[in-house]
Structure formats: C-alpha cells, structure tokens
Design a protein around this nucleic acid. Structure first.
Length: 210
DNA sequence: ACATTAAGTGATT
DNA sequence: AATCACTTAATGT
C-alpha cells in the first residue's frame, strides 16, 4: 500500500504525510458503473483517486441527470471538500466510469493537515481551483454550445478518461448523460459520422478526432 | 423462428 | 431540439 501511495503521490506529498495517509486511509475499490456517492449521502470521509475515472452528475428532483465533469487519477472531489467543512449532504452523484481504486481519508484529518503540511494545503487549493474551472467549463458548455458540440465534447471527454477511443455505450445512455432524447443523439451522431469525426457501430462508437 | 433491444427516419410542434 | 410513430437491424432464446 505504501508503495502504491509513493508511486502516485510521492511527488506531491512529503514522506510524513504519505505515512499518515498510509496508516489512516482505507483503500476501496469500485467496479465500473457502480455508484460511489449518492445524492443526499452524508460525507464522512474524503476520497483520493488512485486509478480509474469517476463521472460527476447533477440530479434534479425528477431523477434527471446531467454530467458535470470527470475525475481522474490524483484528483479528489471538490464537493466532498465543501461537504467535509460544513456538515452538509452531498448534492451530486458520483459514478465509477471505469473500475476505480481510491483511498478514503477521515474528514477530521483534513483541517488538521491543512495547517500541518504545506503540500497538502497546495494540493487541496489546487484541486479546488481545478474543479471550479471545470464547473465553469460545464456551465459554458451547457449554456453556450449547441447540442452537437456538446455531444462531441462529451465523446472526447469520455474517450480521454477511459484512455480508449472506442466507447462502449448506447445512444440511450448518452442521451441520459446529456439530458436529451435518444432520437436527437442518434441524429447528431449520424451527422458526426458523416463529418468523419466518429465511426458508429452497435453498442460502440469510435472517436477519430482527439 | 420469435422476442427484445438498439438504432435510423419522416413528420409535427 | 423534443416527441411520436414507425421501420430496420442486430442479438439473444
């Protein structure tokens, strides 16, 4: 376990901090497509992503969802950060996009480490900043981009986090992530194929322009 | 061969 | 861009 930590965070954190994470953190695995955090869950620990990718979704009262952004190796969840500080419930849903390995850190240590370790402080601030940026990006995408551009961006993002240009996903699933209808997705995908940006197959899509 | 599910299409709002 | 109604194609039993 200590070696995994060193491989992934050795360049980020000082030795003592790695040791603390090693002794206090609880390693956890999630299989692809399992829910890691549900809306209204209370957050009692904060996750550090070791490997895999996590999809962060917003969900409205009808259960309609919308993809906000993806988390990758080394990232942490900004929502968790704000939840740990206040005593609030999660307002988002986190689903494992691929098989995921993470370490759960007790939230009490968060504040303590902020004062104790410079690298931890830098890491938290940096990831908070990155998350805010991605959120703004998501807002821009929804507010200013047309559906076809949103769709293509979605495909590219997905290919990026899975490190695979072939996506195994149905049009229906895409429409749910983008909060639109399947018919629209099918039509736009067809258009993208005609433009030579993707190849369509049943249950899979190959992204050509990355 | 039949049922089920994914994807394509035209028409309408 | 959403919805409906319908077709076609692929896949499972």
């Amino acid at each position: 376990m200590a070696s995994t930590l060193n491989d992934n965070f050795g360049y980020l954190f000082e030795k003592e901090l790695i040791t603390e994470i090693d002794t206090l953190g609880i390693p956890k695995d999630f299989k692809e497509n399992t829910t890691i955090i549900e809306v209204d869950d209370y957050i009692k620990s904060m996750p550090l992503l070791i490997s895999g990718a996590i999809k962060i979704l917003r969900e409205d009262e009808n259960g309609d969802e919308l993809v906000l952004y993806y988390l990758e190796k080394g990232d942490t969840c900004a929502m968790t950060l704000s939840c740990c500080m206040g005593q609030t419930k999660s307002k988002i849903r986190a689903v494992a996009e691929t098989d995921v390995e993470l370490i759960m850190l007790p939230k009490e240590k968060m504040a303590e480490w902020l004062g104790k370790y410079k690298t931890w402080q830098a890491y938290i601030l940096q990831s908070y900043h990155a998350r805010v940026d991605e959120l703004l990006d998501a807002v821009d995408t929804i507010a200013f981009l047309k559906m076809d551009e949103r769709l293509f961006k979605y495909l590219k993002d997905k290919a990026m986090v899975t490190h695979n240009d072939i996506l195994h996903v149905t049009h229906k699933q895409i429409s749910e992530d983008l909060h639109t209808s399947r018919v629209v997705v099918s039509r736009l995908l067809k258009k993208l194929e005609n433009e030579g940006k993707i190849n369509l197959h049943r249950n899979s899509i190959k992204v050509l322009e990355l």
